[in-house]
């Protein structure tokens, strides 16, 4: 094989690899885009909660939030004391 042919071969090989890389990236980005769109659509579909926000519902949801925040604080404390 002449040096020109070797160069052409190398160039073609590089080009194919580059195209593969782009198409792989393209595939990943299209999958991510599809997921993002799906999540966006779900958020839009359920953006208005159907349940009427009565005082009971509001208090229950607030209590749940506080409960979860407390749990996160306890878990963070445990993690901190474990690491330290």
């Amino acid at each position: 094989m002449s040096s020109d042919n070797i160069e052409n071969y190398q160039e073609t090989k590089n080009m194919v690899e580059h195209v593969d890389e782009i198409s792989e990236k393209g595939r990943i980005s299209s999958v991510l885009k599809r997921w993002r769109t799906a999540i966006h659509n779900i958020n839009k579909k359920y953006s208005k909660p159907r349940l009427k926000m009565t005082p009971l519902v509001k208090v229950s949801l607030l209590a749940l939030r506080l409960y979860l925040i407390l749990l996160v604080i306890i878990l963070s404390y445990k993690f901190y004391t474990m690491v330290m």
């Binding site: 779900i42 958020n43 359920y46 953006s47 208005k48 909660p49 349940l51 949801l61």
Partner: peptide, 8 residues
């Protein structure tokens, strides 16, 4: 999702 929205 339907009753409490996306966050919950």
């Amino acid at each position: 999702f339907d009753a409490f929205g996306p966050f919950w």
